[in-house]
Design a protein around this nucleic acid. Structure first.
Lengths: 134, 134, 134, 134
DNA sequence: GTGGTCTAGACCACG
DNA sequence: GTGGTCTAGACCACT
């Protein structure tokens, strides 16, 4: 697990850490029992303040995804989404092929993202309470 | 064009407006000559302060995507990405099919997004200057 | 609403703020719609750092008791306990009389508290999941 | 004497041990000559690190409430408050009755505690040096 | 002026 | 060494 923070994105750093951790949980990169990097490690690797990391970890703890034990570290205890259903379904491969094709068509990364959000909104639009996305 | 702000997302409101506008540009929902909603309209529809909208529009203008003409409104003058290349390429349809399949496999919206980001990182990773993604 | 922090108590300051706010909610001192003191005001009156106050307010917000609106302040939106049932029940008066008697018997404040905790444990002991009190 | 630690309360474990010991002293549950549980016993029953228990006992010793004799154990040597005055005064019985009534009125444990603190502040408020209560 | 994020660094509790 | 609290002060978003 390695965090990639975009400092200029406007999204708070501690929130990016939360999002990336949840993403890793969804993708099965992190599983219950796994140890998150220590706050100190993240400070070094992601060039961010220790408090910021702790804040993110505490929020993850509050969400029941993680548990911190002083002197030991922070460990995954919850799961998120359905990462396991992806493996063996071919979904990933198909997406890779599609994205390669999109790229060959001249689409940039951000174009692809915008398209995915747009299609996702339509596809997963079932009475979303309010505020579909960003 | 209608803005959907997530107030609790942590991402500043004015930035969400910018992002959604740029996204619309990439998707071809907005094209040069189009008129953005007036600040007043956004204030009402998105429950946000007028100054916030103006700040977002100013930033869009600074980026050369938009032009405000007093008394008339704010108009799109620039383009972004390669929206036109999507039409007729079948890319959108393929994505829709893929996403439907993903959904039938039990994936949630957030799972799909995590997967897309993950694959996107791999696919568009070429000499990322630094901090290519989140 | 005025916070009285015991800095030497070992209990974190931000947590004392949370506890006292919840207590005020239980006692009906704070009701939905009421405005909490601004972080700045608490900083001055309670001699504590602004971040510490914000942290407490954010936790209260997370618990759904309070809502912060930038530029406006922090407002009570939730309720807690059954404060209204105390009024008119005579419970408060009876407690006051009992406590006066206890004091005349030579009990100190801390003695009273210890006694109350002890009796409370017995009286409200219904299968508490684990960890009854301090 | 059995310690009940709330791990999530924010209050340090070693302090909870101190508080509970003092409370027992005030209530007469512990009297001079009594033996505290050995650190080892506490470690097992309260799932806490041995050093933490020792630190608490040292603090109690510093306060003159307790004395550790190597090879024998830790023994109560001091008193606190006026526990003896409670017995035979009827105070405890009255409190029990009041609390039962409170409970029948629908008050929760936390409501009662908030009320007691509130009344206690008023009743024992005399020239509080500063920050008399929470 | 109000809430909120971030930093740098100190100090504490715990293993 | 690991998580956690607190401070002082800077800077930002929003009303």
């Amino acid at each position: 697990m390695k965090y990639q923070l975009r400092r200029s994105s406007g999204t708070p750093a501690y929130q990016q850490i939360i999002e990336q951790t949840e993403q890793a949980l969804r993708l099965g990169i992190l599983k219950p029992g796994d140890k998150l990097p220590t706050a100190r490690e993240v400070v070094e690797s992601a060039v961010v303040n220790g408090n910021t990391v702790l804040r993110a970890y505490q929020e993850l703890q509050r969400r029941g995804l993680v548990e911190s034990r002083t002197g030991l570290g922070t460990f995954v205890v919850g799961t998120l989404g359905s990462a396991d259903r992806v493996d063996g379904s071919g979904l990933r491969q198909e997406l890779e092929q599609w994205m390669t094709r999109a790229r060959e068509h001249g689409l940039e990364r951000e174009d692809v993202m915008a398209l995915v959000v747009s299609v996702g909104d339509a596809c997963f639009a079932e009475r979303a309470p309010e505020g579909r996305a960003r």
